[in-house]
Structures are given as structure tokens and as C-alpha cells.
């Protein structure tokens, strides 16, 4: 029987049910406990987490953080890549210029005490969720002091790394910071092939990784595929420098985002490669395809797709 990637989902439904059931009955006494179930998204040794903007219907703000945590628990996800917008107050308010909002943000980052980040970490800890990475964007204009404060914030949150979307020039500026805070810097690609500064191809990743042993690749398989890159060859060659994959689907040639299994990204193969080689890298679900379902339902569908791939 030959399975294509569309029929794969249906045929493996039973396997998915098995995985879900095994999670539910992990403790024979779970039914008697009042506490909500602890999420566990390690599937056959592969850690699966979420870039939570996948909850497209949940605006990213610190005010929605409690809902985010509830949703992660609901989906059974125990790892998250936390964008700073879930942590920091919103400074861009009506009547406030972008420049003024940015200055307020800078001052907030420089003056916020460690206890604030520790309390945020505790919110996730209490729910059984590990903050794997802290996602913050930097530019060439970001002062070194502010970068230092953000890296310290990442460490206080318990993150193993700080990642963001920027190019080679900004990455060079970040070289001193990960070692100082004992975390890594994650280099994240998009599919911009027209900008030589952008992370988009194997070549640009190699340039970035050569800057520091504390730099690791966050391979976004959607964008790498859209940039006509070969994700499997990249992982074969560079897996020791890959901290995580952003796992989702897109079509080649700057093609659109698609539901899992309808694009050109080899999602199943990537997951199995991680599993079969026992690589420590984490698979972070991240998608931009639209849906008429709720965010929780759509995340569950892609998570179940991954569980079936790993069954």
C-alpha cells in the first residue's frame, strides 16, 4: 500500500488515537486528582512545542498570557517559544507615536526587575510548560544595553535561547551576548532571496553559524522550503548546530502557507529524522495557513498530524 501525504492523515488515525489515549492514562490515578493534567508533548522521544502565534484568534499581548497558558494545557503542549509580546506591556497605544512607544519599551526593558520575569516563568512552570526560547526582534539601532537586558530576561524566564528575525549584520552584533548569559542565540530564516543580509539559504546559515559557537540554527522549514531549500539535507549536514525546527508547510517558489501535508515541506520525514537519530532539537509547530476553525482546534489538528508521523 502506497500512502501519499494526504491519505497519510486518515490512515494513521488509529495510531493518533492510541497516542492520545496513552497520554491520558499516563497515571492510573489521574481521575482521582483535582489538579488539571500536566501537558506532555514528548512523542516517542521528540519534543514538540508551539510558537503560539499559531493561535491566530488570540492577539499576542501580556493581557492574554493567561489564556495562552490555558490553551497550551488544553492542547497538551509542554514546550513553548515565547514571543516578547506575551511578556512585555503594550506601549503602542492610540495617540502614542511609534518612536515614543519604542523609547518606553526600551526603558521598560532596562528597568524591569528580575522578579517580574521570575513570576512569568512561574506561571508557565505551574502549568507544566517549559519556555524553550524567548523570541525578540533586534535591529542595528538596538543599543547593546537593551540587548543585554533582553538576554538576561530570556535567562530569567528559563529559556535555553533567545531568537528573533534579523539578518547577518544584526547577528554579528549579538555575538557577545549568549555566552555572557549562558544561553544560545537562535538564527531564524525567512525566504527572502533578494536580500543578501537575510537568513534564507544554507549558505547564509553557514555564514551566521560561523560567527559564534553559541549561535544555533532555528530552521524554519516552511520558509526554507519556500526558498527552494532542501530541509532534509540541511539537517543531515548541520543537525549538531540546529536547536529547533519551526515546523509547518509551504509551497516552493515563495509559495503560500498550506495546512500540514498540502505543501512541499517534508514534515513527516523531518520528524522521523529527529526521532530516529535521537537528536535533541525541538520541533516547534508554527503555521500561517488560514483556518475557519478555532486556534485550539487547528493547533490540535497539526499536533495530531505530528503524533501520527511519530507513531
Amino acid at each position: 500500500m502506497i500512502l501519499d501525504r494526504r491519505t497519510f492523515g486518515k490512515s494513521a488515525l488509529g495510531a493518533a488515537a492510541g497516542v492520545a489515549l496513552s497520554n491520558t492514562i499516563a497515571s492510573p490515578f489521574a481521575f482521582a486528582m483535582a489538579a488539571p493534567p500536566r501537558p506532555n508533548s514528548i512523542v516517542n522521544g521528540v519534543k514538540i512545542g508551539l510558537q503560539p502565534f499559531c493561535y491566530h484568534d488570540l492577539p499576542q499581548s501580556d493581557q492574554n498570557r493567561s489564556i495562552l497558558i490555558q490553551r497550551l494545557v488544553q492542547n497538551g503542549l509542554s514546550f513553548v517559544e515565547l514571543h516578547a509580546t506575551w511578556v512585555e506591556p503594550t506601549f503602542q497605544l492610540p495617540g502614542v507615536t511609534a518612536e515614543a512607544a519604542r523609547e518606553k519599551q526600551r526603558q521598560w526593558r532596562l528597568t524591569t526587575p528580575p522578579s517580574f520575569y521570575e513570576s512569568v516563568k512561574k506561571e508557565f512552570d505551574d502549568a507544566g510548560i517549559t519556555i524553550f526560547t524567548y523570541y525578540v526582534g533586534f535591529t542595528m539601532a538596538t543599543p547593546a544595553g537593551e540587548i543585554d537586558a533582553v538576554y538576561e530576561a530570556a535567562r530569567l524566564l528559563g529559556a535555553q535561547g533567545a531568537i528573533g528575525s534579523y539578518g547577518l549584520a544584526v547577528a554579528q552584533k549579538l555575538v557577545p551576548f549568549p555566552a555572557k548569559h549562558n544561553i544560545f542565540t537562535g538564527l531564524h530564516n525567512h525566504d527572502n532571496l533578494s536580500d543578501p543580509d537575510a537568513f534564507s539559504t544554507e549558505e547564509t546559515f553557514e555564514k551566521g553559524l560561523a560567527m559564534s559557537p553559541n549561535f544555533k540554527a532555528t530552521l524554519d522549514v516552511r520558509h526554507f522550503t519556500a526558498a527552494n531549500g532542501d530541509c532534509l539535507k540541511f539537517l543531515e549536514k548541520h543537525h549538531e548546530r540546529v536547536s529547533s525546527v519551526h515546523l509547518g508547510d509551504r509551497r516552493k517558489n515563495n509559495g503560500r502557507s498550506t495546512p500540514f501535508g498540502e505543501g512541499d515541506a517534508p514534515i513527516i520525514e523531518i520528524l522521523r529524522m529527529i526521532r530516529d537519530n535521537q537528536w535533541p532539537m525541538i520541533a516547534l509547530l508554527e503555521f500561517e495557513h488560514g483556518t475557519l476553525r478555532s486556534g485550539v482546534d487547528e493547533v490540535q489538528i497539526v499536533l495530531d498530524y505530528c503524533k501520527r508521523a511519530l507513531a
Partner: peptide, 8 residues
């Protein structure tokens, strides 16, 4: 845009 709270 003001800060958004709740679900869309």
C-alpha cells in the same frame, strides 16, 4: 492599535 485582549 490599542492592546487587544480576548479572542478574535
Amino acid at each position: 492599535r490599542p492592546a487587544e485582549r480576548g479572542v478574535i
